[in-house]
Design a protein around this nucleic acid. Sequence first.
DNA 1: CCGAATCCCTTTAGATACTG
DNA 2: CAGTATCTAAAGGGATTCGG
Lengths: 147, 147
Amino acid sequence: MEEGTSKSPGYTAVTDPEYCQKWDPREDCEVRQILDRIADKWSLLVIALLDLRSLRFTELRREIDGISQRMLTVTLRQLERDGLVRRTVHPVVPPRVDYELTPLGATLHDTIEALVNWTEAHRQEIASARDDYDRRAAAAAGELVDA
Amino acid sequence: MEEGTSKSPGYTAVTDPEYCQKWDPREDCEVRQILDRIADKWSLLVIALLDLRSLRFTELRREIDGISQRMLTVTLRQLERDGLVRRTVHPVVPPRVDYELTPLGATLHDTIEALVNWTEAHRQEIASARDDYDRRAAAAAGELVDA
DNA sequence: CCGAATCCCTTTAGATACTG
DNA sequence: CAGTATCTAAAGGGATTCGG
């Protein structure tokens, strides 16, 4: 166990201090901080859409059903700050702001695609797992009433 | 463009109605619903840890710095409901509850590893992008004061 | 008109005390 | 030990307003 680097690059023993430090949320720009940004409800959606083609603010808003203007603005600013998205303001009337992935943002393509594909591949299993769980929970609640 | 399935399985044109419906957050167990669960701050961390080995409640709590008991409980319940995590209660004193990935949960290994590896590989770029952004923002604020 | 900043209110997360 | 209950803090959504 002295080495343990060949099999799984990002994974080591849970008790490995280096592993724990890497995940420490207090360190600036450590894995947790970045993961919290990427693994975000809206960020992921924005990146997935911009990976197809560059879009305007309103186009994104229309595509992402349920997002508020405020959260779209906030999300885009965070992604811009992290260098994943480029924001281009066209000084025209009416105003036009285009958003596109930067080269860095584009490197997320494979990763996000993998995530989306996994989700699509397993949604039926998850749906039935939820049904099972809910049915059991309902049954357990029924027993409590009986008792 | 009639086919368009060879290159990128999960990706189609933004205006494709099927693509849009797939992402509709109102549909039960559609992609968005599942993605919101997987691509969650704590869920991802829990799954990554359980992918190494099964852990007890308190072990998870200790490993995931910053998580509250409540959010760990909530997260684990959601993952259990979705069939990704199995919860085993040992009827002993003091009580002992073990959490492990189900076979379904284990299939997330590659995907999550890819996400973690991407994060590790690009954290420097993101850190400098943030510095750039913040320095520019500060400079812009300075100009406003001057003006 | 579009993009975004602001205000207000609701929902959710986080901290802590308590229980089987 | 492994949670639940409760309270407080913060994030998110909606409507309005403003600047270009």
